[in-house]
């Protein structure tokens, strides 16, 4: 669906402040996948996702959407942005309308859809992220942090994208707000069957949800594979300033001490199964 071919990006090319941000990034994002992107601050992951919907033009390489180069002259990047929905970090800071409903309608009304269709889409999107009808006429500025963020996600969802990219959607939220967002993302996956790309700092969250993990380091792709396999490299992840979930360290330490586990675990459930098996508890 999306294919990046040796994408390079140099920040402020041709000036004194020139700085490489992406280096030969080759990636494929397929239909219906659930992908996680991790990397420390400044690893290029935010720059990378802004390439996916044509907000930033690569200084080298090509990006294809369904086989077409998105920087072709007759390719509409405005339309692309409705297909590849991008939810920025702290998306609540983009809310501007007087009511929740109007704010969510901003995206679809930019698509020049009929009035009824716009409303339908806003309703559906708000329902998916778990915002009740009682809040439709409330000013978005009066909502709680978690609610604001879900409204902002609905604003992108209402464009009915085929891919939704979320940049650290749980940053700064408390456990409760975080769970609400993750549940909303889960519902998006189930109800719409679209591709989801989740950028996150939380190893626990990516381990629990995503199928494939891309690890960015210094503008390059360091690892790219099934989540469980990538976390096998926890020692190397640590070297580039990242970590693995706590249970990964735990299971690794247990194996070290001679407990015969089948391998490392990445989620609490998995570790629980392993330890039950090894102790012989049914």
């Amino acid at each position: 669906m999306l294919y990046l071919d040796k994408v390079n990006y140099i920040y402020q090319k041709g000036t004194a402040m020139e700085m490489p941000a992406l280096h030969d990034v080759t990636l494929e994002i397929g239909d219906g996948e659930f992908i996680g992107i991790i990397g420390h601050t400044g690893s290029g992951k935010s720059t990378l996702i802004q390439h996916l919907n044509g907000l930033v033009r690569p200084t080298g390489g090509n990006i294809y959407y369904n086989g077409r180069d998105i920087w072709d002259e007759d390719f509409s990047r405005k339309e692309l942005r409705t297909k590849v929905g991008l939810v920025f970090q702290y998306p609540e800071y983009q809310l501007f309308e007087t009511t929740v409903e109007k704010d969510v309608e901003f995206g679809p009304s930019n698509m020049k859809l009929p009035k009824l269709e716009i409303q339908m889409r806003a309703f559906e999107a708000l329902k998916t992220v778990g915002i009740g009808e009682d809040l439709y006429d409330v000013s978005p500025f009066d909502l709680s942090g978690g609610q604001k963020r879900r409204v902002a996600i609905a604003g992108v969802l209402a464009m009915k994208p085929e891919v939704i990219v979320l940049d650290e959607p749980t940053a700064g939220l408390d456990p409760c707000g975080r769970d609400e967002i993750l549940e909303a993302i889960d519902r998006i996956r189930k109800e719409r069957k679209i591709t989801v790309v989740l950028v996150s700092h939380s190893m626990e969250d990516v381990a629990r949800y995503v199928d494939r993990l891309i690890v960015m380091d210094h503008g390059s792709v360091r690892f790219n594979g099934p989540t469980h396999e990538v976390f096998q490299n926890y020692a190397e992840l640590e070297k580039i300033g990242l970590a693995a979930p706590q249970v990964t360290y735990l299971t690794a330490a247990l194996i070290n001490r001679g407990i015969p586990l089948p391998g490392i675990a990445t989620t609490v459930e998995e570790a629980r199964e392993m330890l039950r098996a090894v102790t012989g508890v049914k």
């Binding site: 409760c176 626990e204 609490v268």
Partner: peptide, 11 residues
């Protein structure tokens, strides 16, 4: 009280 446990504690 809507809080989390560290993974090892929960496990």
């Amino acid at each position: 009280h809507k809080l989390d446990l560290p993974q090892v504690t929960e496990l």
